[in-house]
Design a protein around this nucleic acid. Structure first.
Lengths: 246, 246
DNA sequence: TCAAAAGTGTTCTTGATACACCCATGC
DNA sequence: GCATGGGTGTATCAAGAACACTTTTGA
């Protein structure tokens, strides 16, 4: 059974800040976001360079403290917006990391999220202030602060697992896309080669892609048919027991 | 970027308790455990009756506060042991619930875990003290404290998803089991009927079950072959890219 | 000898895989 | 006219689904 007697007493300090006191010490709660983007057929992650200690100057995942009046997911979205300028992206809870010494200062528990962004529809670098944000290829990730490498590894495993049985991959492409782009996406995420004809047969067989009247108009080759994902139809089919798969 | 200036100052209070104060208010951190067990072919959940406010007298998930010096998973195991007497069970992180008003007292963020216990090898009721613990069938779960119904729903979805592509179902059976018991387990979890011959063909085809020299000796019918799960072989196969499935 | 659960194979259907050439365009 | 990526169909193979009767035991 729970024992729960935090005595909250707010006392003024230096005229501005309040102090919040509890009977037992509490862990600080943060969020960290693994932001995936697809850049020219390559899977990348958005990192920011820390301006403060600890790990000052090191690269890290965007994230920060959860405020007491906001949801954890809200905190993740807020921090993403503040630190990278990204808004309205696909965001899903990943895992909560609570090793005792993962932060050298004190006990910090971090709820990690992963985000999928349509890189083509968002500016390639941090849009907000002069924050040092940069996209790193998966195979060129530098040494990171805290346990952020582990968080990224977890996120990648999750993404690879999930992309196969839920249509979240589309979140990495722009609204309109070609089948080749879609195939490239899966090849980049899953690190495999896929057969073009079989891939098309399967994905078109689901009847979840709506062919548009437009075609691409670029490059010295045949223009490609553009499609968009039929989210409405998908959620309808899902209710009826349909399962998206690869 | 993070801003981080918790001023920790411990001051004596009433001669015994310390007060821990921070510059910003902090959420309390708890764990909650959804404990699944298989009782006579039926999937059940272990609940405890709350002895303290809020929700005094209501049924709830076992759980409690995370101490500042222990891992979240450690907290989950400790609370499980304290409240239900269960130890050495399969335990996996489920999801972190952080709605602002999920606890009427103050902001509480809870990391939920789910556990799978071999009910046959653990006493059917809470073994510790006079704690009011009881196993409930999935379709007879009473109204619960906090958002615990939602946590259970999430856990059930997860269990149903995971049991099909990872051999965690065995955690619900005793070490030695018959194929019928295994099939019943899957039928109970997935809420479907499975074909006996196809089920056996598939599961035996994986070569992950070791037939024992024993057979069951009970009931007025033909004795059944006993098996045990070959965990070593599974982890070896998994490394080589093998995928368990249904 | 009856009830109750254990155990066992084959056919059919469906989906997965493998594979090579023509098309439309810009330069 | 050539380089570039877009687009298409069939044959084979493997896995999933459907399906009914015999065996062993205790009472």
């Amino acid at each position: 059974m729970w024992e729960f007697k935090p005595k909250k007493s707010n006392s003024r300090k230096k005229g501005i800040t309040m102090a919040f006191s509890y009977e037992y010490p509490r862990a600080a709660l943060t969020v960290d976001c693994v932001v995936f983007g697809l850049d020219e057929g390559e899977l990348k992650i958005l990192l920011i360079q820390r301006g403060l200690a600890p790990f000052k100057g090191k690269w890290a995942l965007p994230g920060g403290f959860v405020r007491v009046e906001e949801t954890i997911a809200e905190a993740a979205r807020r921090e993403l917006a503040e630190e990278t300028g990204l808004e309205n992206v696909f965001l899903e809870q990943l895992f909560t990391f609570g090793t005792v010494d993962r932060d050298p200062r004190e006990r910090v528990v971090s709820v990690a999220y992963y985000a999928l962004v349509k890189l083509s529809e968002h500016p390639p670098t941090g849009a907000s202030d002069a924050s040092d944000a940069a996209w790193y290829s998966m195979d060129k990730i530098p040494a990171l602060a805290f346990d952020h490498s582990e968080i990224i590894a977890t996120a990648l495993t999750r993404l690879r697992g999930k992309v196969r049985y839920e249509p979240i991959g589309f979140e990495l492409l722009s609204e309109k896309f070609t089948l080749s782009q879609l195939q490239n996406l899966y090849e980049a995420v899953l690190q495999t080669d896929l057969d073009k004809r079989n891939f098309r047969k399967k994905i078109l067989g689901m009847k979840l892609l709506i062919p548009l009247k437009e075609r691409t108009r670029e490059g010295a080759h045949r223009p490609a048919q553009l499609f968009r994902f039929d989210a409405k139809r998908y959620s309808m089919l899902k209710k009826r027991g349909f399962n998206f798969e690869l």
